[in-house]
Amino acid sequence: MSTLPHRERAMDAAVDDALRTYPLRPAPASLAPRVMARLRALPAPPRFRLAWIDYALCLLATLMAAVALTFWRFVTPEALQRAQERLIVFLQHAGLATPRPEFPLALAAIGLAAALLLLGVGVWRNSS
């Protein structure tokens, strides 16, 4: 129970009441028409707009793809075999067993595909 005297409580109630009932003025009738007139006067926005982060991610994905393609041209079957073996050794060292030798490369490919898919979804959502 409150120990405030009656006068104090009445004052608090009056202040609370005034705060809650502080009136809003009506917006001027000309505001919305002026806004819409300004919008109509603006040049038409481009149909496909991206934020800077989308451009950055696209650039990164393109660079990754370019590096992968360039690298792939110089990969011999022996080098690929060595890379697989090293990856398997690394995974075993990290305590991750690999049931098949293709597994690590498949995992990397799935990861890359998922990253590119996420990027695509992000760009599509932003532009729609």
């Binding site: 809003l24 003025r25 009506p26 917006a27 001027p28 505001l31 919305a32 806004v35």
Partner: peptide, 10 residues
Amino acid sequence: VLAHQQFVYN
């Protein structure tokens, strides 16, 4: 705009 104009203006 119509939904928010009053509060934005105030």
